[in-house]
Amino acid sequence: MLKRVHFPTSYLPYLLVAPQIIITLVFFIWPASQAMYQSLLIEDAFGLSTEFVWFENFQVLFEDPKYLESFIRTMWFSGAVALLSMGMAIILAGFADRVIRGAMVYRTLLIWPYAVAPVLAGALWVFMFNPTLGIISYFLEGFGIDWNHYLNKSQAMGLVIMAAAWKQVAYNFLFYLAAMQSIPKSVIEAAAIDGAGPLKRFWTIVFPLISPTTFFLIVINAVYAFFDTFGIIHAVTQGGPAGSTNILVYKVYNDGFVGLDLGGSAAQSVILMILVIAMTVVQFRFVERKVEY
């Protein structure tokens, strides 16, 4: 006869995970399911008349060339933000890693921008680049560049990319610096003795060894550029001129909260939700496995 051991059931584990479960339910599952339900409706703003339309809101989106444009624009924007902020961060971290005197001051100053709220960061750049009053546009005029991001699409895009990347440099810097400092000094010293210069050492030793951090940061930066840049766009361009900086997350806000098209806006946020889930899966399934530590 098979012997079974019965442990008395304890409620303690359930009790311990309960806060987390409740928080997830209240702050994620519930609003997310509301958004999914809303995306199937066409409704007036006050919720007085509601029509259940299945997937018509999605169909309208995918047939709208403006939405597809915004999609491509978002990809482009995210790529540029990630590349610029990670590129800057890796250079700064490479130098900071070698600094011996005053390292703390240097590092603290580099981390500062991270503490600035996105809207304030945006406002800062708006002031500097105001076509009429801005200090930088004044200097640019000296070089014969007529700066007007209210009108010039590529200047507007360039400005929001710069503002968004500037804010993320600090975060990337922290991770890169930590990664570089965890590389055993002996490896680098051995290469130095063999006659490898700083650049050679960086490309053949440091860069490959910090690749897990790079891949991690790519995902984090992409998510940042997709979602957290809302405040910057709102403060700098509000999606203009001619929709040239209207990225997906801004469009969700604009259609939903300005245009009061709740169904269409909800459909867009459902698509964004699917995207972020997909990115997380990619991060855990492929990137983390394939990268050699």
Binding site: L151, K153, G240, P241, A242, G243, D255, V258, G259, D261
Partner: peptide, 21 residues
């Protein structure tokens, strides 16, 4: 109706005009 959004569209299209597109 939806005039907030329609104004945005007019803004966008006029900006395309000023940009020479």
């Amino acid at each position: 109706g939806n005039f907030v959004q329609i104004r945005d569209i007019i803004n966008e299209e006029m900006e395309a005009l000023w940009a020479g597109d």
